[in-house]
Amino acid sequence: MSPHLISEFRQRFASSGMTPDLVRDFQDEVMEFYEAKGRHEMEWRLRFDPYRIVVSEVMLQQTQVPRVAVMYPKFIEKFPDFAALAAAPQTELLSAWQGMGYNSRALRLQKLARQVTDEYGGVLPEDPELLEKLPGIGPATSCSIAAFAFNRPVVFIETNIRRVFIHYFFADDFVVDDRDILPLVEACLLPDRSREWYWALMDLGTALKTSVPNPNRRSRQYVKQSAFEGSDRQVRGAVLRALLACDGKNIEEIACSVGESGERVEKILGEMCDEGFFVREESGCYRVQR
C-alpha cells in the first residue's frame, strides 16, 4: 500500500473509528495485495488437509518460513498422517526434526497425534476450544488451525497480523495492547474467506518487516528473543545431536562432544530427561527415549 493510502486509513480511523466503509476499503486493499504478492506457492497452502495444517502451524511457531519450506515436505513424506506420526519411534521423529530448533515441539506434536488418533479416531476436531486442549496448541495456534484447515471465522492475533494493524491504525500510539487490536481484527474479518484473509494479513505483515521499522516493538506483548549463541537452547540442540548420533554416552563423554562443562551438561540432561527426551540408565549413561 502507498504511504498516502496508509495515511488516509489512519486519518479515517482516528476521526470515525472502524466504519463499514473503512472496513470494506481495508479488506479490498489487503486482498489486492494478496492476489498480487501473496505467498501462494507455500506447500502447506496447497492442500487443506488438517494434519498437514497442524504440522505446518507447529513448525511455523518459532521457525522462519524459508527453513520450514525445506523441512516440511521431508517431514510429511516420512510421517504422512496422524497415525504414522503417532507410531513413529522417538529417535526417528527427533532425527527428522533436526534443523528446525525448539525440539520440544516435535515431542508435543507426536503427543498431539497420539491424542487425535486415540480420542478422535484420527480426525482432527474443528472447534478451537477442543484444538486448544491438544499438546502444544495455544489460543492463537488453535484459531489459525481452525481457519486454515476448516475456514472457520475465528478471531486471533499473531505477530504478522499484529504488525499490520499497529502499522495501519495505531501510528501515534507508543504502546498498543492486543485488547485494542482484537476488535479491529474481528471487524475486518471476511467470515466466508477466513483462510485467505488471514493468509493475506500474514503475507502483508511479512512484507512490512522489510519496508518499515518494526511496528511490533510498540506492542505491549512484544518480547525480544534472547541471543541463541551460547544459550541453553544451543547446548540442548548439541546434546540431542550427540545422543542421536551415538546413544549410551555418559555426562563426561557428552560434555566433551559438545564442548561444555560437565556441570552445565548434567543440568541440561536432567531437564531433558524430565521433558521426555532422554532416559538415564543404571550405568549412568544416557540414551534417547524410545
Rank of each mutant, 00 (worst) to 15 (best):
A242N: 05
R24C: 12
E275K: 11
E77N: 12
E32A: 15
D177P: 03
L94F: 07
E43W: 04
Q90Y: 10
V155E: 08
G276N: 03
F26R: 06
E29W: 03
Y51H: 03
S16Y: 09
A227L: 14
P20F: 03
E281A: 13
L93M: 07
E266H: 14
R47W: 01
A36M: 07
I181D: 09
V68R: 01
F169H: 05
R24F: 11
V258C: 08
F278I: 01
S15Q: 15
E282T: 10
E29A: 15
R152A: 14
R287M: 03
F278Y: 10
V239W: 09
G284T: 05
S16P: 01
R10V: 02
A87Q: 08
F13H: 08
R218K: 14
G276C: 02
F26M: 11
L60T: 06
V239T: 02
T19M: 09
M272H: 09
V70D: 10
W197V: 00
Y198E: 07
R280A: 05
V58T: 12
L22S: 03
A200L: 00
F165T: 00
R217L: 14
F82S: 07
V176A: 02
S194L: 02
V288C: 05
D118K: 13
V279T: 12
D192R: 13
L85K: 11
G121Y: 06
F79Q: 09
G230V: 02
A255W: 11
D118F: 06
M202E: 04
P128Y: 05
V279I: 14
V279H: 11
S15K: 07
A140T: 08
I53H: 04
Y222G: 01
P89G: 07
V116Q: 02
R162K: 07
I157K: 06
G270P: 13
V239N: 10
I251G: 05
F174N: 14
D127K: 11
S219P: 12
P153M: 03
D118G: 08
V258D: 05
N216I: 09
S2Q: 14
M100A: 05
E77R: 12
Q98C: 02
F169T: 07
V175I: 13
D81W: 00
P125I: 11
R280D: 01
V68F: 10
S194I: 00
